[in-house]
Design a protein around this nucleic acid. Structure first.
Lengths: 339, 339
DNA sequence: CGACATTATGACACCGGTGTCAGACTGTAT
DNA sequence: ATACAGTCTGACACCGGTGTCATAATGTCG
């Protein structure tokens, strides 16, 4: 199996390299006959262009980088799966790069990544989607990027998010309609914009239904299971104890459920619990968690597709889009008991 | 910020490109003085070699591919994290490529991957680590590869695994020592070699303790939560019902726990449940799952490090290694009650 | 001191593509 | 027939490195 290069194709077809290149890139100004002939030789020799050589000539790598720093493994998995789908469709590859937002040398780290990998573009997932420093850096370096699940408005870059505020509003309203008025809330990581949005949705819902907002019912989390466990302790120790808990993601909700079960507080009879994200764990535990399904894969897929589109021909108008979140009810929430 | 290439460095330092290249690659036969001088210019101009150009000249990409087809997201996350660690250490990048083992065109798919990405090497995770077809293909194409958690012996390639058989043996023995004799077993995916190994460990332990092997207690799973739920139903419907269940991974064990809880079978008082892997879910549910901790990250990290080592200078003797698995006891198992 | 091995360096082709530009070949209007 | 625009094609340099080889400089030994 000898190597098949553009030269061998050109020779075999009796045309110049450049013409072969033109056919490869679907450039105009190639006669139909020539194009046919070359395409046939592609088949015959089973020719595949070398992406590295292409990359060198065009200063591209055909690689998209995905930056993340997220305690939720399932979120990352979903992000990857959406990004991969888009990449494969357009013959790009996906390079994953976990790193820390708080690392003092975030910029250095990304700089390093860029120089060693020559990425064609970067997908920023939370909390990077909202990092002004990083965004400024990428802009200055003229690296195309797309932001997933960010709340920053008025930016002129590609951005896809889902409606966190509305989702949280609906979920809270669901709890209220079940008769709950003392609804505890566990906030997410302060660096993620979703955290504020979800909290706003919660507040809007209780306000709409004339329920007083009680700061004592709010706990600070950071999306990790561990932080959920801490918040759970604080909340379940409250007196009077709330009848429902809304955690900003399913991991933290699972932690609440675990502690409640340990303390023999019956869920949902004595305590309703709800999460956010519709992570796998929401249906892997009993009772299953009522939650908000966020289209994470789809968001990321769209973000990467737009990014790739942007790379091949920069758009004037930035693509910005908001997807809807959807309420999923399971066994962990029920009407408040009269006890 | 102008582009700094090897040419500008050479010019600035007053030497030839080739000498710069020599310094870059730590080649011998460069006088200390020259080396110093060039290194200083690197600093001064902040020069970073272009990996794409390098790749073209050396026919390398500095990218390692990771193949997987695994229903357990957390397993994949752990695999990635180990692989990433090794890659970053050696300035390689990691490209992830999920695909289906059973896909009729697995080979085509990988072929495609290789031609579009020019990977320097591939890490095979289960079930690919045991795919004879794929291994034969990679061997023929002379693509370096490393196999993670495979059971095939006598192969002359890099292979790292953990001791599944021993782990399962210890866990089973733990249950036996708690007084259980009717221990149900849920098998994993038939394509994964770990499945047979874990099953053997189970059988060896009960045999050692003079317990009769009962085929009725064995259910077929495939490592997915869903398959665990099906097996759980079969097992909990048995009469007499076993007093303990050993599932081949934690997801399936979680499914057993969920069903048991739904049916108000008390765990661990009426039923002990154990899993395998020490996945996050094992400690995110109540009661926490007794399980076997497998060093997935470490296995993968070592596999990738050896792979990279092998790429830069092929070894004569293949690196093969077995890591130990460790029993972790949590609340889901306890001594059999006398009822 | 001459013969020879060793070290240090650079010129140049090459990896496998793409960009630029010039020139040949069409077709159409005058 | 002539001028001119538009289409098609190839020669050649170039992307930013590395491999090969020749040659210059240095060291070693009899």
């Amino acid at each position: 199996m000898k190597k098949v290069t553009i030269n061998s194709v050109a020779e075999y077809a009796g045309v110049s390299k450049k013409t072969v290149s033109r056919v490869l890139n679907n450039e105009p100004n190639v006669s139909p006959a020539t194009r046919e002939k070359v395409l046939k030789v592609f088949e015959e020799l089973n020719y595949k262009p070398n992406p590295i050589a292409r990359g060198l000539a065009q200063n591209r790598s055909f690689i998209i980088g995905c930056l993340y720093d997220n305690p939720s493994k399932s979120y990352i998995t979903r992000v990857q799966s959406g990004a991969l789908e888009a990449c494969q469709k357009h013959s790009y590859n996906l390079l994953i790069h976990p790193c820390e937002l708080r690392g003092q040398d975030l910029i250095d780290n990304v700089e390093q990544l860029l120089t060693t990998s020559r990425l064609d573009g970067i997908v920023l997932t939370p909390p990077f989607s909202d990092s002004k420093e990083l965004i400024a850096f990428l802009k200055q370096r003229k690296i195309p990027y797309a932001r997933v699940a960010s709340a920053i408005e008025g930016d002129d870059s590609i951005s896809i998010r889902s409606n966190d505020e509305q989702g949280a509003f609906e979920l809270t309203e669901h709890l209220i309609k079940l008769g709950h008025t003392e609804i505890a809330f566990i906030k997410g990581h302060p660096d993620h914009s979703a955290t504020e949005n979800r909290f706003s949705g919660y507040q809007r819902a209780i306000a709409k239904h004339g329920i007083d907002f009680q700061p004592r019912l709010v706990a600070e989390g950071n999306f990790s299971y561990h932080s959920g466990a801490d918040s759970a302790k604080a909340i379940l120790d409250l007196d009077p104890r709330p009848t429902a808990v809304f955690a900003s993601n399913d991991y933290m909700a699972a932690a609440v459920l675990k502690l409640a079960t340990q303390r023999e507080i019956k869920v949902p009879q004595q305590l309703s619990i709800a999460g956010f994200d519709n992570a796998p764990i929401a249906r892997h535990i009993w009772p299953g968690l009522t939650t908000i399904a966020q289209p994470v894969e789809e968001m990321t897929r769209i973000a990467v597709e737009e990014l790739i589109k942007h790379i091949s021909q920069p758009q004037e108008t930035p693509f910005q889009h908001v997807l809807e979140a959807k309420l999923i009810t399971r066994e962990s929430t029920q009407a408040r008991s009269n006890s």
